[in-house]
Amino acid sequence: MVRIKINGRWRELDRDKDLAPAMTLSYLLKEVLGLTGIKVSCDEGACGACTVIMDGKAVLSCMMLALQADGHEITTIEGLAKDDPVVEAFAAQSEPGYGTALQCGYCTPGFVMTAKALLAENPVPTLGEVKEALSGNICRCGCYAAIAQAVLRTSEKVRAGGCR
């Protein structure tokens, strides 16, 4: 049996029935468990769309075997609170000069999860630190300026004690 804590709940998976040796974590989460917030775009670690949080760190779920998550804690975008401040900041971003933090939305869950991990580790990042942390994610619609704004805004809000 493989045990993975996914979004707060331990799941028991049969090594032979549910998993294949070469099955990636992204495949398990999306195709098998139906967590469709995960987007698999490049499937080779280049775009960040499939980012999830494992034990507090952002990881590319397409670059991990499902078996490697045995005994670990995984958070996908489905595991975030309804009023998650990062999600809300991405959705609301619209101030003049920066555009919106999402357009087609396909890369967005990956960016949100990467930003979550960044803010957990560094609650008050500089713009440079945001750029560095998020430069493993690709947004072809090009919402980078607004994404950075959304992350900085979340940081301000959290610092002001407005939310968790």
């Binding site: 098998v32 469709t36 698999v40 996908t76 919106t100 933090a101």
Partner: peptide, 27 residues
């Protein structure tokens, strides 16, 4: 005007469904 997108929350929360999210074995 300047205002949020109408699909902002749906997309930022990962709830927006794309073809690859619909065409899965679970469905």
């Amino acid at each position: 005007g300047y205002r949020p997108r109408i699909d902002g929350l749906e997309k930022a929360s990962g709830r927006a469904l794309y073809a690859d999210d619909v065409a899965i074995k679970a469905n």
